[in-house]
């Protein structure tokens, strides 16, 4: 859709925080003259200063499939994979319903090509380092959109493993994140936990939060495209 270009400069990146137990999508302008990679490195350095150790790499990717027939209201299926659950595939509908299946589900999507077709240049991937610090797991990564390998934003995931309910450890996680991130970032809220504040955590909660952030990345990427003549 033709849209006027937003007032953002190109070196403004969105920093999206995915918090496993409390979801907050936050965007704030990166200081002028600082690249995305520098932002990631600065964050990683601060986490290492805390005393956290790198345990491995992490990847979360998302493919989007749209309905084949153009006549009806377009519907989407998002297929996500998370390296934390390497044998699992998550399929999320527009309504937010999430199906948790084995990796074989990818093959099934190929079988129903007649109904759902993969959207081109819609693949979003988050890649980075996974840190362990006591009972916390921190993941800091950069987000890549479509075929391009250019940097689109920073994503941070913080998990406090012993707790299973968000409302209980809200203050605790806020205090922890404050030790390496500015308060303004932490206090912006996303939608996922608004309704599920007292629910017990499940892996799909993480994936749904990632999807919410990926969608925001896509929207911001579209808004930054030059208007079509």
């Amino acid at each position: 859709m033709p849209q006027s270009c937003g007032g953002r400069s190109l070196n403004t990146f969105n920093i999206l925080l995915t918090l496993l137990l409390l979801i907050r999508v936050l965007s704030y302008p990166v200081p002028e003259g600082k690249s995305g990679q520098q932002t990631v490195e600065a964050l990683q350095k601060q986490i290492e200063v805390l005393g956290a150790t790198v345990s491995s790499n992490f990847t979360v990717d998302c493919e989007t499939y749209g309905t084949y027939q153009q006549t009806s209201q377009p519907q989407h299926i998002n297929i996500l994979h998370n390296s934390e659950q390497p044998a699992t595939c998550f399929a999320v509908l527009d309504s937010g319903n999430c199906l948790v299946a084995d990796l074989q589900f990818d093959a099934l999507m190929n079988k129903i090509k007649m109904f759902y077709i993969q959207k081109k240049n819609a693949r979003v991937e988050a890649k980075g380092l996974r840190y362990e610090y006591g009972d916390f797991i921190i993941k800091v990564g950069s987000v890549v959109l479509g075929q391009s390998t250019s940097f689109k934003g920073v994503i941070v995931e913080v998990e406090y493993m012993p707790a299973v309910v968000v409302s209980e450890c809200f203050g605790l996680m806020r205090e922890f994140m404050f030790s390496f991130m500015p308060t303004s970032v932490i206090d912006a809220t996303t939608n996922h936990w608004k309704t599920k504040n007292d629910a017990i955590y499940a892996p799909q909660d993480t994936v749904l939060q990632y999807l919410e952030h990926f969608n925001n990345f896509r929207k911001s990427a579209v808004s930054m495209m030059p208007p079509m003549q």
Binding site: G51, Y133, G134, D135, F136, Y160, P162, A163, S167, E168, C169, F170, G171, L172, E175, F176
Partner: peptide
Amino acid sequence: VSLFSTPCHKCNKFLVDNLP
């Protein structure tokens, strides 16, 4: 029951040495 939701009575913090 309030292991994660109550800050310390003395220092009023949640985390010390990475523990509540």
